[in-house]
Design a protein around this nucleic acid. Structure first.
Lengths: 210, 210
DNA sequence: GCCTGTGAAGCTATTCACAGCT
DNA sequence: AGCTGTGAATAGCTTCACAGGC
């Protein structure tokens, strides 16, 4: 189901674009085309969330988006915090607050006193000591970690202690958290290594011992 | 094999740390512990690249690193370029050039004339028109795309035309490139959506209709 | 004819579990 | 006793291929 969730989020974004462009119906093979996946998997994904199209017109875009919104708990608002206002952290603040972003990045934190009390793209930066108060006040439930590896585990511990339920972690190490907290790691160096590797060793070449 | 490659890159990094800390041998369950994977998968991954340990001491760290270096074509140097020196692009330049980075980010490109001819962390920023010359001169083979979605496909086309063989794409769309070019997508908004989702719907809860 | 929904098949990835070594 | 290497089992994901509907 994990992969399915990733794709559904993508479908939703693409469908909103289509709607904006005036389309009202879409076939699985069209959604496949723009998403880069196969038509079969598109159909199965939609089947999994219980949305049904018709052979005549395919899927009704508006209704499907609503269905996806429900799947992603649309009426709920989940507030986000970010810890580590370095280069990457500030870039992410910009990314997640830009124009009509639907994300609620409500606060950033950094240990550097020079950054504290500044605002980045309208997002206030606090001292790390304030995390308990701010998280409780703003009812944040998801955190983004962009601190150096050395500090990441202690930041994660702080987040867990303050009832953060999901973490997007950019620090290059594996965090230790209770099972009830979901962690998604984004290890930029590893992704680059992977590209470097596959830029030479194309996927499943027929030559070679296996 | 794809997942295996990702883990191997991680093992290599972790093993280098261990070596720096004076360790010389490591057991599969120890590498599992620090990497966050299972001992069984660590053993199978190492088996896949043909490195063999001994029941007595486990794996010899130094020799294993060398083996991994060969696997990742160590003697070769692959030069990188980055297109799109916005917030995220500049953060990545900083990330991939910092301290003793083993990556060779040799040039950045941007269409904004104000950025052209600047240097970011020592990395020169060129006008996009120069891409053919610079890529040929510096023999870059992998590119990072951090431009807005609207421009990403044309940047990818340019890269392909200039014999780039691997792309790390941060633009939120699926790029159209020939099969011979490897693309890894990093869609930050989707990763965040995933965390938002799983922060509420924990993975395989026993409740629910299925 | 061209679409959807879906059982069944096919692949890939992971874990189990244990023989064999030291 | 405690480790590795690995066949076999399991789980998870994707594609095939086709019945059924308009």
């Amino acid at each position: 189901m994990e992969k399915t969730v990733e794709r559904l989020a993508l479908y939703r974004r693409l469908l909103k674009n289509q709607l904006r462009n005036g389309k009202t119906y879409i076939y699985s093979h069209q959604l496949a085309e723009i998403s880069g996946y196969s038509a079969a998997i598109v159909r199965r994904d939609l089947m999994n969330i219980g949305y049904y199209g018709t052979p005549r017109h395919g899927y009704e875009i508006k209704a499907l988006i609503e269905c996806l919104d429900v799947f992603f708990d649309k009426p709920d608002v989940k507030n986000l915090i970010l810890v580590g206002a370095g280069n990457l952290g500030r870039a992410l603040i910009a990314y997640f607050t830009k124009d009509k972003s639907e994300y609620n990045l409500v606060a950033a934190f950094d240990s550097d006193p020079l950054k504290v009390n500044l605002k980045y793209n309208g997002c206030p930066c606090h001292s790390l000591e304030k995390i308990a108060d701010v998280v409780a006040d703003l009812k944040a439930s998801v955190g983004i970690i962009t601190v150096p590896a050395e500090n990441a585990q202690s930041v994660a511990d702080l987040m867990v202690k303050n009832r953060i339920k999901g973490i997007l972690n950019f620090a290059p190490l594996s965090l230790n958290v209770p099972d009830s907290v979901y962690v998604e790691n984004v290890d930029l160096a590893l992704m680059l290594e992977k590209v470097l590797y596959f830029s030479v060793h194309r996927r499943q070449e027929e030559t070679g011992k296996k």
